[in-house]
Design a protein around this nucleic acid. Sequence first.
DNA 1: AGCACGCCGACT
DNA 2: GTCGGCGTGCTC
Length: 672
Amino acid sequence: MAAAGRVARIVIDSALPQLDHLFDYGVPDTLDADVHPGVRVKVPLRTGARMVSGYVVEVLPREQIDFEGELTPIDQVVSTARVLTPAVWALARKLADRSAGTANDILRFAVPPRSVRVEKAWLTAQEAAQEAGREAHASASARPSVAPIGGYGDGLLESAIAAGERVALRTTPGVVRTPEGEWVGQWAVTLAGAAVACWASGRTAIIAVPDYRDLDQLAATLVALAPADAVVRVDGRQTDSERYKAFLGALSGPRIVIGSQSAVYAPADDLGLLIVWNDGDPLHAARQAPYIHTRDAALVRQEQQGGALVLAGRIRSVEAQRLVELGWLRAVDPERAVWPKVILSANQTAEEPVARAARIPSVAWRTARAALEGDEKTAAGPVLIQVARPGYAPQIACAKCGQAARCNRCTGPLGQRRAGSVPSCGWCGALATNWHCDHCEHDRFRLVTLGSGRTAEELGRAFPGVRVIVADGEHPVQSVPDARAIVVATRGAEPVAAGGYRAVLLLDGERMLARETLGVAEDCLRWWTNAAGLAAPGAPTVLVGVSGGLARDFATGRVAEFAHAELADRRALHFPPAVRLASIAGAPDVVDAAVAAVDPALLIDVLGPATVDDATVRAILRFEYAKGQDVATAVRGAIVRNASKRRKAPAGKTGFRPAPTLRVQFDDPDII
DNA sequence: AGCACGCCGACT
DNA sequence: GTCGGCGTGCTC
């Protein structure tokens, strides 16, 4: 049956950890011409009738296969498109191995679902291009002349990229107008310039960004710098066919691939540059198993495939700092230290009656008023107000005893969606009509936390006649014109202002810092720095109500020193990224078995298991980077054993077997 | 996940 | 003596 003695090694599309290895299938004569590494196939598994899909990973002569048994033949080749490239396969395998996950979980993310129409059109175009010869293909996207990348010394960044260096890059603040009249952050011009330089030399450049708004800025910048067919955009908002079209575009080689997390997995046999923008942003942490961080995927890919690696940001993440101190990354800072003008202000309410009514601190109010009115030197323009939370009043409390109001149904926080509305639950959305305090029975409430909507309302009263624009997750605003306006934005959702903001007020710094997570200081520094970077040259940024070392580092732009000190703290406490963590959650006996599977000699210690809820516990393993692979292998063994072992059905019930739950996550950023 | 194999209780 | 229960283990 298996003709020509050829054997295909195939990765099966299955979520089961025990099937996460290559299976050998015979290549029948009829399919011999179509079976190549990377094609999608259908193969029988266990029984002839049950077909599963998979990808061919490699094709070998029968003699080189260890498998002794009789080989089942491949049933069909789904399409001749070789969608799983060897480099992407190697990356998926390595990332799965080091996170105790399955390669399939990564491939589902890396290779989009097939869209037949899109694929047929692509295959036809590929054939036509091949017949027309190479020249026709190359001239379709004439390489543009490449402008030098400014701000880093003559050709410094270009030569680092050409040499395939690994770089921790700090970008300069400010906003720039594209030739098409769009305003984008200076960072986008720097990164796009680097990508175009790489692409012009005939290699693919990938830029992975945390947020689709960053993506829009990059795309707008690239319009003037590269031909449209050289740029491939991948993001979560695309339909399946759009995604597949973009994917096949990247597969057709050298391209500039820009996208959210999944861009880091884009096919590129000729990878010249891999950029992760704002690598410290929590949006780079995958929310699906095996929870691979974009930065980690980029680091592994660069190691496997070569090319330059750039972790870029206005600040430096603690993880990047670790790699700099290790000598793995070279720190590249702007030639001239440009830092926005930052004013630290106490959270003292203004004496002016209107500002007092709006509860705006004095310095902040005066700064905003000056910017909105303008003077001889500067025309009036937009003012950015950064707040911590969207909505109107995310939390209300009893007006009499002060107890926080909770939902009767789910105990979620009660808040107010707009002025005068009935309170509703922030978790389940239930309306609390006729609310009364369950502590003192009082029936009036007051607003505790203020969202962007409420802040906007107060500012509107404080500055009558000035347009107020709200920008948050619910009301996304990409850009605002160069005109008098108050722009109230939640952190991370700030629009770009044409010409830059005349003033930036960071109102809720104290509240942002109150979050109890390990990375809170870095997050705040990044949110503030990114907002301050949207200011016009020389325009003031006021940080309200925060003092101490972090505020001073922000005011003076000591971001490398901040990262260094933060890393030193983590070392002292044995917290990541000084060490690595793996969390193991599930039923108590399952977690115990998984922890027991790891040789204690590999670990620094085990925290827990601690109770999560009545059926679940969680243990945390701490270990050194050098032990990571061994820990992952041991944990993976436990996962496979657990998955193939059936657990007893609950008494009485037959046939129903609950899936044994075991959730493993390496390097969870919000674990502590 | 499916699905077959396999080793102990009540049936023509 | 066999039919069939579902616990156990494998899938090229």
